[in-house]
Simulated scan of single mutants.
Amino acid sequence: MKLQKIVVIGAGTMGSGIAQWFTQQLCSVELVDNSQAQLEKALKDIHTSWDKLAEKGKLSNAAELKTLISIKMIDQVAKDADLVVEAIIENLEIKRELFKKLDAYFGPHTILASNTSSFPIHLMAEAVERKDKFLGLHFFNPATIMKLVEVIKGKDSSEKLCRDLYAWFDSKDKKPAFCKDSPGFIVNRVARNFYGEPLRIVDTENEAKEKEVDAILKEVGGFKMGPFELMDLIGIDVNYSVTCSVWEAYDKEPRFAPHKLQKQMVDEKRFGRKSKRGFYKYD
């Protein structure tokens, strides 16, 4: 499989990270968003990341990479992309509407993929004609560092396509995993308990208890980050949205239920590192 032209829809944290990673594989990448301001911020952050890596001697081709990535509005994108990865808000109807438009816009050879962290692929595939070329590719934040990519075969996804993509990611030093097409797939289904149980243990906002839980899971459990640190890194708003989606998808199974503390922090716009305040404070 050859992937040369990549389009990433959504210039938020995940989308920009995915776009940066594909560019670092020397693909030609177009990053798309409805907000010009968000696009410019994402491109600036990506360039800054490369400059810092170059200063540390960890990247020798920063100048070349900058020529391979561009920011576009959707109607400016070339129609001959090899792969389009959607990384927008976790809202099923909005995703379905987007994929309907993408299916009509791009050439017949283009692969369409969703980075959804919670919605079954077959529900989005209903919106497109090219069901055999539609699948899930779920990256993890930060996409430039986290090696795992969940490859999710929908009901009508081509078996060969999924295996070819698996092999392609494997050749690029990612760690692909085939996943069943079910809400939350592997990681986000398991992770609901990694976040949910600590939230229920702490119950109300208490930084000392949050630090204690994080320390125990790192020192005893062997995790690199505790659940509260990880929620702050991912974004409490993103984590809460995924929790709600998985909970709804499993008919409000109690073990997947969101916690009141998550909602409180989202309502207060305390999203974690990106807002400088979450479970912990950041300068």
Rank of each mutant, 00 (worst) to 15 (best):
G235D: 08
A54I: 05
A127W: 07
A143T: 05
V7C: 15
T243I: 03
F22N: 08
I46D: 09
N91Y: 07
Q38F: 05
P108S: 14
Q24P: 12
D214P: 05
F271G: 05
K263N: 04
C27L: 00
V242S: 03
D251W: 04
D232S: 01
Y166W: 02
E55Y: 07
G10D: 02
G136T: 12
G17L: 10
K180S: 01
A167N: 09
L165T: 01
V238G: 03
D33L: 11
F134W: 14
T23Q: 10
G107P: 02
F178H: 12
F22A: 13
C162T: 00
G278R: 03
Y250L: 04
A113W: 02
I88R: 04
R270Y: 01
G12L: 12
V84T: 12
F223I: 09
G136C: 12
S157K: 15
M146W: 00
I88M: 00
I111D: 08
I18M: 10
H122P: 04
L43M: 13
D170L: 11
I216H: 05
F140Q: 11
P183G: 00
D170I: 00
F169Y: 08
Y105K: 06
F106W: 06
I145R: 11
E210W: 00
C162A: 12
M231G: 02
I201D: 08
L53D: 12
K211V: 02
E150S: 11
F106N: 02
E30G: 08
G221H: 06
E30H: 09
Y240K: 09
R130K: 14
F185E: 04
S245Y: 04
K147A: 11
K101N: 15
A143Q: 09
V29L: 02
D45R: 09
R277H: 09
A125L: 15
L83S: 08
Y166R: 04
S158M: 01
D283N: 10
D283P: 11
I74W: 01
N239Q: 10
E86A: 03
A42N: 11
M265W: 13
F169T: 06
F194I: 12
D214A: 07
I74G: 00
V213R: 01
L39G: 05
I216R: 08
L65C: 12
S241G: 08
A257S: 11
P183I: 06
R130A: 14
Y166E: 00
A215R: 11
W168Q: 03
A37R: 12
A78M: 05
E229Q: 12
D156I: 06
G278S: 09
G226K: 11
A208T: 10
W50V: 10
I71E: 05
K160D: 04
L26T: 14
Y282D: 00
H47K: 13
D156H: 13
L53R: 10
H259P: 06
L92N: 08
E90T: 03
F134D: 12
R163L: 05
W50N: 03
A81W: 11
K260P: 03
T144I: 14
G12V: 05
V238W: 07
Q38I: 13
I18W: 13
E55I: 04
